[in-house]
């Protein structure tokens, strides 16, 4: 029995690491676009806005099937994003304020629905802290499969529209002027983000999902100036953070997986900011001193 316990533990660890790695790959790659477009916090808004969708899906179907709840979350997150886009387009309210108001009020509405569900006495529904922090440890093989398939589709769509999305990110005005349907592309990119976020809700939760989009991308940005390499590196960093976070949290009891993954991703960012060649702080300091020395040599020679 002892051996079986260890085996089970090991098996769970592999499943959760695989799930976290896949999740990190998808969110790292797609997060690169959000970071480059200065929409890093869109992920935070979408993940909070998903709460009422989960509650409504549960109220309508009475089912706790993950796929149905995920669908509800995706629809609510998507509607929240469309609302954000149209408020920004139609008013003078700045992007960050719109994000803040949509994120908090959608979440508040979700909370209202949640108390409604609680009142109906359905005791075995998942708690709100699962939504907020996720429960990576409860990930099943089927969940990993779902993440793999849906995340894979999202990445393939990203690759198909590679050229269009690249233009959207770097020169929206030019893209519009040569006839690309900017608004449709914007919605496409955001929809891909929604997919990545909704997939991550169960594992790392709403609050920390935004970090999974931002951190790997920011780290990758330090190492390269090319989009292709940045997306690839971000995917790798995301996977690295997922696996290492899972392993670290499994070494001791009562270390939640989601936050550990986020801290690992943050550590990768810290390392990249300090040590990345060309852009990093160390490199910058060395270059600074070399310039100063050269300047001194030249002035003394004259």
């Amino acid at each position: 029995m002892e051996d079986l316990g260890i085996f089970n533990h090991f098996y769970t660890l592999i499943i959760v690491s695989a799930g976290a790695a896949l999740l990190g790959t998808v969110s790292g790659a797609l997060g690169s676009y959000a970071v480059l477009r200065r929409q890093s916090l869109l992920g935070d808004a979408i993940s909070h806005a998903a709460l009422p969708g989960i509650a409504i899906a549960f109220l309508l179907t009475g089912s706790k099937t993950p796929l149905i709840l995920v669908l509800g979350a995706a629809i609510a997150g998507w509607l929240g994003t469309l609302l954000i886009m149209s408020i920004v387009r139609l008013t003078r309210i700045k992007y960050d304020s719109v994000l803040a108001i949509v994120l908090s009020t959608f979440f508040g509405f979700g909370l209202v629905l949640h108390t409604l569900i609680q009142r109906t006495g359905n005791a075995n529904q998942a708690g709100l802290d699962t939504f907020l922090f996720g429960q990576a440890a409860t990930m099943l093989e089927s969940d990993v499969l779902t993440i793999g398939i849906l995340g894979g589709i999202a990445l393939i769509v990203m690759l198909i529209f590679w050229k269009e999305l690249k233009l959207l990110v770097f020169d929206e005005g030019f893209a519009a002027s040569i006839g690309f349907p900017i608004r449709t592309l914007d919605i496409l990119l955001t929809s891909l983000l929604v997919v990545a976020i909704v997939l991550g809700l169960q594992a790392v939760g709403a609050v920390l999902m935004s970090a999974m989009l931002v951190a790997p991308a920011v780290a990758a940005r330090q190492w390269t100036d090319r989009l292709r390499l940045m997306v690839f590196l971000a995917a790798c960093f995301g996977a690295l953070a997922g696996v290492s976070g899972t392993i670290i949290s499994s070494t001791a009891s009562r270390i939640p997986t989601g936050p550990t993954i986020v801290l690992c991703a943050t550590a990768v960012v810290g390392f990249s900011i300090v040590f990345a060649p060309n852009r990093g702080l160390v490199w910058d300091r060395i270059r600074h001193q070399r310039n100063r020395r050269n300047l001194k040599m030249e002035t003394s020679r004259n």
Binding site: V35, R38, Q39, S40, L41, G43, D44, D96, F133, V207, L208, S210, A211, L213, V214, A215, A217, V218, R221, Q222, R254, I255, P256, G258, P259, T260, V262, L263, T266, V269, I273, R279, G280, L281
Partner: peptide
Amino acid sequence: RTKLVKADAAIGLTFPALFSIGVILISR
């Protein structure tokens, strides 16, 4: 100020990290 990270990304990096520390402290 390092000019390596834009304002929005800086916010998006900082608070989840601090929040994670809080959550880990609570569960520990």
